[in-house]
């Protein structure tokens, strides 16, 4: 028997999750997600950082828990639809050093991570530190003089400005793995919470003399959501596990593939779950005050926030021998 095979979080990781969960509950974080066009909640962000939630990503703090802790924290933040550039922050901590890294970890500097060539900068009007991802590399961008405020689907105000990237930063590849893990974990955390709420609703609301959940047309799509989310969440955890075991190049390569798959899998599964939950909640699910929309738009927002998309597909195509760009 393998004494080692274990996909569950250990006591330390569970303790981190509990602490983050308590913090989010005490601060009624989920209510933030219902707001639109508000200033970024800087105080809340700093208070979250004071818990030490960003330290696990720091290479110089291996005692802080590493990628598995990042995964556990991100899942929990997703459950509460916590606002802000969570994956970008973890990513930045991998590539920054010294005062810049400390400012990010302590919640004093807000990170904007955008795609090369794009003028739309996530949290661009509020950010203190700009990073640009181009394929497998990340560069520091000069802080723009001014960014035009842009309202977004997720209710967050982003900014439009042209960034001038500086030199490429070291450890970019590792940073992008962490970003994918955090994104996947956040999305699955958010979607699981929504799925649980929807299942509770389906188990109690009666129509035609039966609970909604007794109709297979309702229950089976939710079962499919659970399957997709379980797979995506396990991919994220396995990627984190391989990342923390990066003693060998092959383990890091495996982490890169698993993280890419996790990000793609989590995007698909969480979006599918959001749509299914809207449908099951029906009339309740299409009101602004209802239990779905503030989560579904956040899932949509995070799923489209850099990094992501084509780069992950290329990593996986390389895995199956179809490396190189398509003509």
């Amino acid at each position: 028997m393998s004494a080692g095979l274990d996909l569950a979080y250990d006591e330390d990781q569970e303790a981190i999750r509990s602490a983050v969960d308590r913090f989010c509950t005490q601060h009624a974080v989920e209510d933030q997600a219902r707001l639109s066009g508000q200033a970024f909640p800087r105080t809340l962000w700093r208070q979250l950082a004071e818990l030490g939630v960003f330290y696990p990503a720091a290479p110089e703090h291996p005692e802080a828990g590493g990628a598995l802790a990042v995964c556990a924290i991100s899942e929990t933040l997703g459950q509460h639809v916590f606002p802000g550039p969570i994956a970008a922050t973890y990513c930045a901590i991998q590539v920054l050093h010294g005062d810049a890294a400390s400012a990010v970890m302590d919640g004093h500097a807000l990170v904007s991570l955008s795609s090369a060539g794009s003028t739309l900068l996530p949290w661009g009007t509020e950010a203190d530190l700009f990073l640009v991802v181009d394929g497998d590399t990340i560069a520091r961008g000069e802080t723009p003089d001014a960014a035009e405020p842009i309202a977004t689907l997720g209710g967050e105000t982003w900014g439009r400005a042209r960034l001038k990237p500086d030199a490429t930063l070291p450890a970019s590849a590792r940073a992008l793995i962490i970003a994918n893990i955090a994104t996947a974990a956040y999305l699955t955390g958010a979607a699981w919470q929504l799925l649980r709420a929807t299942s509770n609703h389906a188990a109690t609301r009666k129509q035609f003399g039966k609970t909604l959940g007794e109709f297979q047309a309702v229950a089976h799509p939710l079962a499919d959501c659970a399957i997709g989310l379980t797979a995506a969440q396990t991919l994220a955890r396995a990627a984190a596990c391989s990342f923390d075991d990066r003693a060998t190049d092959s383990a890091l390569q495996q982490a890169r593939s698993l993280a890419a798959a996790a990000a793609l899998s989590a995007r698909r599964a969480s979006l599918g779950t959001a749509f299914a939950c809207h449908q099951v909640f029906a009339g309740i699910g299409i009101t602004l005050e209802g239990p779905v929309y503030h989560v579904s738009r956040r899932i949509r927002q995070v799923a489209s926030t850099p990094p992501g998309g084509g780069r992950e597909r290329d990593i996986l195509l390389n895995e199956i021998g179809l490396g190189g760009e398509a003509p």
Partner: peptide, 14 residues
């Protein structure tokens, strides 16, 4: 299989 998941994991009928 979907009924197993919906009943035993999500607490639904189906």
């Amino acid at each position: 299989m979907r009924s197993v998941v919906s009943r035993q994991l999500l607490g639904l009928g189906g």
